[in-house]
Simulated scan of single mutants.
Amino acid sequence: MRCPFCAHDDSQVKDSRPSEDNTSIRRRRQCESCGARFTTFERVQLREITVVKKDEKRESFDRSKIEASVAIACRKRGIAQERLDQLVSGIQRQVETMGEPEVPAQAIGEMVMEGLRQLDSVAYIRFASVYRDFTEARDFEEFASSVRDVGVS
């Protein structure tokens, strides 16, 4: 594993343990060149998934993009990181178990929407505002009223 500090190619694993949600392995490493310590995570990848964007472009599935989107939607909402990790892991599992080598980005977006809807209504609305491309205040009002109608807390 390349050191993020000095870019040396070799590091030594000092400690290895399962993550809190048991979906990855957390490894503490030390660079053999500069001695810096850093953490890596190892996750199971069932198969290579290609995401098909709206404009028909294709790219490899990237869990970190979902993590970043969920983190932005949930910023300052007081939601435990463990719950966010569980949400992202659940979405990743759904995508990988669909059995398809190509998954539309829209399907992943809908999975995120559903997960956030169950987790936190404000995060759900925040994500929806970007995902559904709200352009004016009326869009927020209409969507928020539909969330209230459904009874999401």
Rank of each mutant, 00 (worst) to 15 (best):
F143T: 06
R47E: 08
R148T: 06
A128G: 02
E141L: 15
H8N: 09
R58I: 08
E67Q: 07
A128I: 14
Q106I: 15
D62G: 04
S89Q: 08
T50G: 05
S89W: 01
G90N: 06
A73Q: 06
I72H: 08
E142V: 13
Q118I: 02
R63F: 14
R37H: 13
D9I: 09
Q118T: 02
Q81M: 05
E67F: 01
E67L: 03
A68I: 00
V52R: 09
R26P: 08
A105N: 10
R27H: 05
R126D: 00
T97R: 05
V152D: 07
I91T: 06
L116S: 04
C34A: 08
E102I: 11
T97K: 03
A80L: 08
S121M: 10
E114H: 08
S60I: 11
E32R: 13
P4Q: 02
E141S: 12
V70K: 09
E67N: 06
R2L: 14
C3S: 01
R148E: 12
C34P: 14
V147S: 03
F61D: 00
H8S: 11
I49L: 07
F5M: 05
S146L: 12
A36R: 08
R2C: 02
M111H: 03
T39G: 11
K54M: 06
K14L: 15
S16Q: 04
S69V: 01
M98G: 14
S11M: 03
C3V: 02
S153C: 07
E42R: 10
R77D: 06
D85Y: 14
F143S: 03
D9Y: 12
E48Y: 10
Q45H: 07
A7R: 14
D10Y: 09
A107Y: 14
T40G: 11
E110V: 05
P104W: 11
S11Y: 04
D9V: 11
F127A: 00
S64V: 07
K54G: 02
E136C: 14
E100K: 15
S129L: 06
T40N: 08
R58M: 09
V152A: 12
E136Q: 12
A137V: 15
E59A: 13
L46K: 11
Y131F: 15
D120H: 00
A137F: 15
T40W: 11
C34K: 10
I79T: 03
G99R: 01
D133S: 15
D149E: 15
D120Y: 00
I79F: 06
E56C: 04
E59P: 14
E42A: 09
K14G: 00
D10T: 10
R63Q: 12
G35W: 12
T97D: 05
K76V: 13
V51L: 07
V112M: 08
S69G: 15
S64K: 12
T50P: 10
K14N: 02
R63K: 13
A144K: 09
R27D: 02
V130P: 02
A107C: 05
P4G: 02
R132A: 04
Q118Y: 01
S153W: 09
D139G: 01
A7Y: 15
V112K: 01
P4M: 05
A68T: 09
R43P: 13
V152I: 11
I49R: 06
N22Q: 11
D120N: 02
E67K: 01
V122F: 00
D85T: 11
D9W: 11
P4T: 04
